[in-house]
Nucleic acid binder design. Sequence first.
DNA 1: TCTGGCACTCGTGCGCTCAGAGTGCCAAAC
DNA 2: GTTTGGCACTCTGAGCGCACGAGTGCCAGA
Lengths: 344, 344
Amino acid sequence: MAGEVRQLDDRKLAVLRAIVQDYVGTEEPVGSKALVERHNLGVSPATVRNDMAALEEEGYIHQPHTSAGRIPTDKGYRLFVDRLAEVKPMSAPERRAIRHFLEGAVDLDDTVARTVRLLAQLTRQVAVVQYPSLSRSTVRHIELVALAPAKVMLVLITNTGRVEQRTVDCPGTVGETVLADLRARINARAAGQRLPDVPAALEELPAMFEQVDRPTVTTVLATLFEALAEQNEERIMLAGTANLTRFGHDFPLTIQPVLEALEEQVVLLRLLGETTDAAMTVRIGRENAYEGLNSTSVVSVGYGSGDESVAKLGVIGPTRMDYPGTMGAVRAVARYVGQILAES
Amino acid sequence: MAGEVRQLDDRKLAVLRAIVQDYVGTEEPVGSKALVERHNLGVSPATVRNDMAALEEEGYIHQPHTSAGRIPTDKGYRLFVDRLAEVKPMSAPERRAIRHFLEGAVDLDDTVARTVRLLAQLTRQVAVVQYPSLSRSTVRHIELVALAPAKVMLVLITNTGRVEQRTVDCPGTVGETVLADLRARINARAAGQRLPDVPAALEELPAMFEQVDRPTVTTVLATLFEALAEQNEERIMLAGTANLTRFGHDFPLTIQPVLEALEEQVVLLRLLGETTDAAMTVRIGRENAYEGLNSTSVVSVGYGSGDESVAKLGVIGPTRMDYPGTMGAVRAVARYVGQILAES
DNA sequence: TCTGGCACTCGTGCGCTCAGAGTGCCAAAC
DNA sequence: GTTTGGCACTCTGAGCGCACGAGTGCCAGA
């Protein structure tokens, strides 16, 4: 790989950069003449043509038909992102606006909702935000409420502000004192624990109750563990689907599988799951595992309160997208959501 | 209006019905010859042509160009829905499947999510489900949890299974006993009350506490009332946007405003809000207040646990949609969600 | 009141041509 | 050796003309 790249001298790389920039802007194959006109490369079209031929030979660009201009391939975008582009930072006013908009949120739902809309608007693409994940967060409080003689509502509140709730059908009548006792003991042991550690912390609990009450206790605990484990813990919010209409000319064909993918939470979760925690991840075209997204790129990054990344967010757009701008917006938004979450 | 309709004899109505049915099926303007071939009307094409001319005169159908077939106008669909079509009931296996699918839900979120996906799948259109509204529901329990010396978390649980939560910053330290007292008193008065009635029921509460604690009490109550009033109580879930791709040929133009509308919860809420409670509402084309939905139809109906309709659900599709089938699906789903909610 | 016939309209698809943009290659210049 | 200008070649897309077919409106006769 590195060998291949080394064969391309600086001017060829400049040509590739120019091709990507122009194509992203105009959405039309770019030819040698137009290229020298718009970027002052200091060489003639003929020279550029030679370079283009070399770039095509290496698989970085491709021409749709003979005698049309060139468009970048996935591999070309990849090189562009890795070596030719710099993340474009947000301007100070933009950063202020982001922060201000996110600060207005009243609760976690609202924060996520605002984040996703903001991201969609900034990038003019489809934005995806995963809720702060349960697996990394800790128990703030667990509440038990009697609804009926043999029916209990269980509410789980996490440090990220998330609330999960379940109704439990108990095997027998549940006394108010037993319930209060159970509530107190559960919280004493579970509060502050990371969610995956909770079952272990509560292991010995049934033994501490009288024989009669044990079935109730175990039933409640079972439901609690279920809520903890529930993979539907992984929720996602979406915005900006209207931006799909700006995808391109041949778009009815492109847009259908994308819309389908967006409807499948599982697909989106896996998509974001591929993000390596620390840095920003860019998946270009066929690099995406999901087939329907083969002509789109995904830019994603982890975010979280404090140092730890507890969830991910990202943007989905056509491979022909403004990578520097998109990456800048994604990074900025992730940073600010993290701050907001840390504060609340 | 009634006068105009009376001028159309039975055969003309039959012709209109046939035109609607054919156009919905084929998506192409339907001509007189094709019409007599596919429906045995017992008359010749020429006769049908005369009837068509009359129908066009009255504004029920319209031809895109001279010498093309006819397509129904909004007014034509309206007449079709009002007088010519019968709601097509779901088959027994379909009903069983619906019920079975909805019964698998674990909580309210899940119920709504399943409902909306089901509706989208059945109608092959875009489905919208409003969460059971807070304003009609009653308080099941209100929970207060101390998070920090001067920080309290407030959790509101309704009889529809919905959970709202807020953190409250109190003016001073809050003692555990005061908190327990407050919790008990709030619940004693508010439990079972309809949400709008809660403020009145808690009016005299601050006076029952010692002077020192009153600021805390009023702050907590203020947040509670805010949570009750919050218009964001009105949440909505959406599914089936991928079905937009089946909208029609000129679809890039049609689809954009629709996607925009779908992103705006406010628009959707107003849309469903127009539903009159009892019966099913059908808004055809320009009958929709929102401009972007001028070439779509909305079929919506209220649903709820028991007799009372606490929320609404519906379907958005092209004006050229299968009204009888869609209406049947919407009605059936609404009925079963109501049952499921009543049981839980 | 319905029907068959007939002339008329118009959109669509097909084949054709032509201009323009872009390329590849080659020989000359730097 | 690299760059440049020139030239022939290719291909797409727009524009045009034409024939076809579907569909209509109207009229005279049943």
